[in-house]
Nucleic acid binder design. Sequence first.
DNA 1: GGCATTATGTTAAAAACTTAAACAAATTCA
DNA 2: TGAATTTGTTTAAGTTTTTAACATAATGCC
Lengths: 408, 408
Amino acid sequence: MRKINPKSFTTATRGTSREINRQIALTLIRTHQPVSRADLSRLMDTNRANITFLINDLLEEGLVREGATGNDAKRGRRPTFLHLNSHQRCAIAVDIRATRTYLMMTDMIGKQLENIVSFPTELEPEKFIKTLSKLIKQLLADNEEVSACDGIGLVVPGMTDIKTGMVLHAPTLGWRNVELLALLQKEFADIPIYIENSGKACALSQIWATRSDLQAHNDLVFVSISDGVGVGVVINGELMRGKHNTAGEFAHVPLSIDGLPCSCGANGCWEAYISNLATISRYFGKNLSPRQPLSLEAANFTIEDLVKRARTGDGKALAALHLTARYLGLGLASIINVIDPSQIYLGGEITEAWDLIEPQVRAAIKERTLIRDLGATPIRIVPANEYPRLRGAVALVTAPAFAAPKVA
Amino acid sequence: MRKINPKSFTTATRGTSREINRQIALTLIRTHQPVSRADLSRLMDTNRANITFLINDLLEEGLVREGATGNDAKRGRRPTFLHLNSHQRCAIAVDIRATRTYLMMTDMIGKQLENIVSFPTELEPEKFIKTLSKLIKQLLADNEEVSACDGIGLVVPGMTDIKTGMVLHAPTLGWRNVELLALLQKEFADIPIYIENSGKACALSQIWATRSDLQAHNDLVFVSISDGVGVGVVINGELMRGKHNTAGEFAHVPLSIDGLPCSCGANGCWEAYISNLATISRYFGKNLSPRQPLSLEAANFTIEDLVKRARTGDGKALAALHLTARYLGLGLASIINVIDPSQIYLGGEITEAWDLIEPQVRAAIKERTLIRDLGATPIRIVPANEYPRLRGAVALVTAPAFAAPKVA
DNA sequence: GGCATTATGTTAAAAACTTAAACAAATTCA
DNA sequence: TGAATTTGTTTAAGTTTTTAACATAATGCC
């Protein structure tokens, strides 16, 4: 039950019903393709005539194309299958991280068109934009058969203003109020550019994913753990943004208000207990923190190294992982109590040790969730080779064409 | 940007546009009444003819009535004002609390029709239902001019299943899996009955409120502090429910995982630091907890007493309030970081001391919010005489008639 | 091979709404 | 009294869904 906002609503016009049904049809073709008109009429619970009209529009616009005829049925005329006309239009996805920046090129349904390319992230915004633009132009030039680029999606490890396209604060890049969109738009005047925080983008990557093995959850949380902890929340099929586009910051909800110092300036944040740095510092037996310099030994030691050692019998490494697992679970319990999602997605290097830490995580979740069902909230590990951040950047570009129209 | 759920959507029909515009018109009449057809056509950015058709339907259904003619304009024909036809239809609101249960009767726009009545809450469900039914029937009988009761809304201090109408767990009542709806429905077969958790109902009371001084926020959080702590979250005009209708449980997010024991069985929950019991026990210098019996002195001492003493120069009382204020602020900071609402509403006895505690609360919020704007999130105190829980119960009954139709 | 059966997709007309334009009603101002 | 102005209704046109009929294409049975 949603309240209509009396200060901001959309009156329905003659075309509203068509607009709604058009988006539903597109969504169904996207998730069910190949699919016939008759299939759509059954799925949408409307008559075939109406589907004919809708599809004629979509064919004319070039969003949909007819393919082969099917032959599943034992009798009757064979259906002509419909597909999204994903070819000849592309999206560029950019994942900006502290050390390297990654680029991926896909068609309109997210099929990868080129190998992922990357370059070291330059911290000087102007220089960064220059290198990035060159690589994007290269990608577009290498794919001449693609007639139009539908957009560039950028994902940033920090807070963004989606309206102005500014990076408000990205601690690991040292960026503050960088006009990323304006700078890039100068280079690509005709191409729409979208910017989003990486935690939120990861959440987007999951609602807009079209993997067949997975039912479409419309309430989910994505938690990614690396240098920092990013969280994105989707409620009712929509990203939880909040008034300043900062919603979802579970990383800095405390486990203990007087606990370990955190990079944000406060104490005892969840992030201070479960970031890669926290786990590594735990292994080296010190309360290393972002505010203390690392020893040389620890600085060159990655979480992957630690997992390797834990797997080869290093008891201290395993103990460090297990303690991180416990804190991870305690924080997830808070997320579950607050959001009550249908599914939690977990990304980051430490998830490669999921088999080692799952029992500890689960136990900690059960310890603090309020009812038993909540303790059983399903958790899915998202491996790095699924590129959730890049996939989120793709969704920034491709999703608007399928989104529900704003109504009432 | 909302994703259409390919497993659960609503195809638009011939009547969908009318349905949408009808609900918008009702919403606008509700918030702007008295209002003319011409006003509506301007507000909705459509032509007057369309409004005439819409209003004719609503007049025929008896949802809207014509009133006096206005004379604001300096020239031209005077408008005929439209009003919601709130008379002759009523809602019964029931607020079930640990010690007493309160009843309020309103018309369809929430105007109070009778004085609030109450009775001691009987913990035996069957007995409780018997007493409650008698009082409701009395109220209906005393208002014979009311021809139809549109529903009964019940608010419970515990977890509810809104589909089955069961109270899953209400600790202060000692109820577990009580079939409240089924039992009451036997007594009132023809009247729709709605049940909701009290924290969520308080949040509802604010989005559906029609006070003129307040702009309509579509993202808000309601925090009510009494024996326990209840939280309700509204996002995008819709209550955040989660998969099991338990979302919003910030009360049991820890301030310190090894902190004070909480009634929920875990340690260090926010509730254990800011509930009335926590403040009182702090005053008596003990770490009283829900798991320890109270001293006789403390048992008969209310939070109102404590506030009174703080106002009359009792330094220890003031210190206890100030420490609660600090913890209150630290928890609110987490809520702000996670939800980033446009406004926070605060209810409960302790808010009567808001002038004494606001600086401490504000300071603690600023200490842990991630950007400056978040630290300035507006907080509005909701006094007890606005009856937020009863108002939420009213909204359960009256809101569905104004809600946005489910579309796409 | 021919014909009934079955399923897909299109077409034509009907029904439900919004929109545009014209008009009636009611009021002010000169 | 008449022009101007605003409100509300009516009529007709335009857009879209819906219903019903029909063309198309395949299978299976005689």
